[in-house]
Simulated scan of single mutants.
Amino acid sequence: MNALETSLYELTRIFLVPVLLLILAALVYAFFALGSFVMEGWQRRRGRYQSALAARQAAHGGTSDDLELWIMQRLEWLRVTSRSAPMLGLVATMIPMGPALLALTESDAQGIGNNLVVAFSAVILALVASSISFFVLTVRRRWLLQELRAIERAGEMR
């Protein structure tokens, strides 16, 4: 490899640890959001749910547009996680593929295996985080829009 190719290779290796940490953070956040979602669903089923949207409307007033903006802000991190985790998984898959291919040319089975374990583990965890986040996002968005519609129908909007 020439100097440019070596520099590019080294630069990509720098990103592996931060990308893996971001994938772990996305996974932790997804499970936290799932736990919160399960609790909210349980409260809704039992009739004990206190609507944060209605409480916000009562405390701050505002228009339907204001509440829609609040809904978007509340769901923002779920949306970001569900969309960015697969990309991070792809990056974390591709970075170890270079060393795995180099190990293949040297008939280094252990080097191939070590790099492929990192690559496939990272993409699996990223897809799990994305799937959980997308599920929670989809259902929670429906719940919040139903609440917004109920507030609008009740005539509480100015």
Rank of each mutant, 00 (worst) to 15 (best):
Thr12Ala: 13
Thr12Asn: 10
Val117Ala: 15
Leu20Val: 06
Phe120Gln: 04
Gln110His: 14
Ser121Met: 06
Ala154Met: 03
Val19Ser: 12
Val19Tyr: 04
Phe15Gly: 15
Thr93Phe: 13
Val118Tyr: 01
Val80His: 06
Ile71Lys: 07
His60Pro: 02
Glu106Phe: 01
Leu75Val: 09
Val17Thr: 14
Met39Pro: 03
Gly98Arg: 01
Ser131Gly: 15
Arg48Val: 09
Leu125His: 01
Val91Ser: 09
Ala54Asp: 07
Ala92Pro: 11
Thr105Arg: 08
His60Thr: 10
Phe134Thr: 10
Ser133Pro: 03
Ala55Ser: 15
Phe37Asn: 07
Arg149Ala: 13
Leu144Thr: 00
Tyr9His: 00
Ser133Gly: 07
Pro96Lys: 07
Leu90Phe: 14
Gln43Ile: 02
Val19Glu: 00
Phe135Glu: 04
Arg45His: 15
Leu148Thr: 10
Arg141Met: 09
Leu104Pro: 00
Ala92His: 06
Met157Glu: 06
Tyr9Pro: 00
Trp70Gly: 00
Gly98Trp: 05
Ala85Gly: 05
Leu75His: 02
Asn115Lys: 06
Ala150Glu: 15
Leu127Ala: 08
Ala122Gly: 04
Gly111Pro: 07
Val139Glu: 02
Gln73His: 13
Glu5Lys: 11
Leu127Arg: 03
Glu5Asp: 10
Ala119Val: 00
Ser7Trp: 07
Ala92Asp: 10
Val38Asp: 09
Thr105Val: 14
Gln50Trp: 11
Ile151Leu: 13
Ser131Asn: 12
Met157Asn: 04
Asn2Pro: 13
Phe31Gly: 00
Leu104Val: 07
Leu127Gln: 11
Ala25Gln: 00
Leu116Val: 13
Leu144Trp: 01
His60Asp: 08
Leu4Val: 11
Gly35Val: 03
Ala85Trp: 05
Ala92Arg: 06
Val123Arg: 01
Gly98Leu: 05
Ser36Thr: 11
Arg56Thr: 03
Asn114Leu: 13
Gln110Val: 15
Gly62Thr: 01
Glu152Val: 10
Ala100Asp: 07
Ser84Asn: 14
Ala52Thr: 15
Ala129Ser: 07
Phe32Glu: 12
Ile23Met: 00
Leu75Gln: 05
Ile95Thr: 07
Pro86Asp: 06
Met39Lys: 15
Ala59Ile: 00
Gly47Cys: 11
Leu90Gly: 05
Ser82Asp: 03
Leu148Phe: 12
Phe134His: 08
Ala58Cys: 01
Asp66Cys: 04
Val123Ser: 15
Val118Leu: 10
Thr81Leu: 03
Ala30Asp: 02
Met1Thr: 08
Arg46Pro: 03
Leu148Met: 14
Val117Leu: 13
Thr6Val: 07
Leu21Asn: 00
Glu76Gln: 14
Asp65Gly: 14
Phe120Ser: 01
Val136Asn: 00
Arg158Cys: 04
Leu67Asn: 07
Thr93Gly: 05
Ser130Cys: 11
Leu145Ile: 05
Glu10Arg: 10
Val80Phe: 14
Gly47Leu: 12
Ile132Met: 10
Gln50Ser: 15
Ala59Met: 06
Leu4Pro: 02
Pro99Asn: 02
Gly155Cys: 10
Ala26Leu: 03
Gly155Tyr: 08
Ala52Cys: 09
Asp65Pro: 02
Arg48Thr: 08
Leu116Gly: 05
Ala59Leu: 13
Leu34Asp: 09
Thr138Trp: 06
Pro96Leu: 07
Arg44Gln: 14
Ala100Leu: 08
Thr6Ala: 11
Gln110Tyr: 09
Met72Ala: 14
Ala26Arg: 02
